[in-house]
């Protein structure tokens, strides 16, 4: 199946995540924790009028809430969430950076309690400066230097 075909393949019910920064789609799938029952189609390095090159993912039979999907904004800005029902677009929104994020990020500070104890990591996000601050060790990091926990 070529990328071209995937791009045009429509799904009957489910979620499309569009305008993913090229090269990040696999990380997006990790974040979404998509279970084995869903068919997932991905497209990489597609041409986009909006952002040049983009990745895209289509998940069949699963409707993602904005809340579930918002953390994608951490690794890729300007992502669009599209909900499809019976081949019709029923919802289309640009994802917003959440104010805070739990679990998903590993604190880069090796002396942080979240790296030595059974603690859920928690970060406050400053979407303007594109930085996060660890709720526990209070260190500030740019979004670029963060590792996503899988």
């Amino acid at each position: 199946m070529s990328v071209k075909q995937i791009k045009v393949n429509a799904i009957k019910n489910g979620t499309v995540i569009d305008h993913i920064t090229a090269g990040r789609v696999l990380k997006v799938i990790d974040i979404l924790n998509i279970n084995d029952n869903n068919s997932v189609m991905i497209g990489m390095n597609l041409n986009s009028r909006k952002i040049g090159k983009k990745d895209i993912v289509k998940i069949e039979n699963r409707e993602l809430s904005e809340q579930e999907a918002n953390s994608i904004a951490l690794i890729s800005p300007n992502v669009t969430l599209i909900i499809i029902k019976d081949f019709e677009v029923t919802k289309k929104v640009e994802l917003q950076m959440p104010d805070s994020i739990e679990k998903l990020i590993v604190c880069p500070n090796s002396k942080c309690i979240t790296n030595s104890d059974e603690v859920t990591s928690k970060f406050k996000i400053d979407s303007i400066s594109k930085t996060v601050r660890c709720h526990y060790c209070e260190k500030k990091y740019s979004l670029e230097e963060l590792k996503i926990k899988i």
Binding site: K111, C112, I113, S116, H135, K139
Partner: peptide, 9 residues
């Protein structure tokens, strides 16, 4: 504690 964030926890 030498562990950062431990008091918050």
């Amino acid at each position: 504690s030498p562990v950062e964030g431990s008091a918050r926890l």
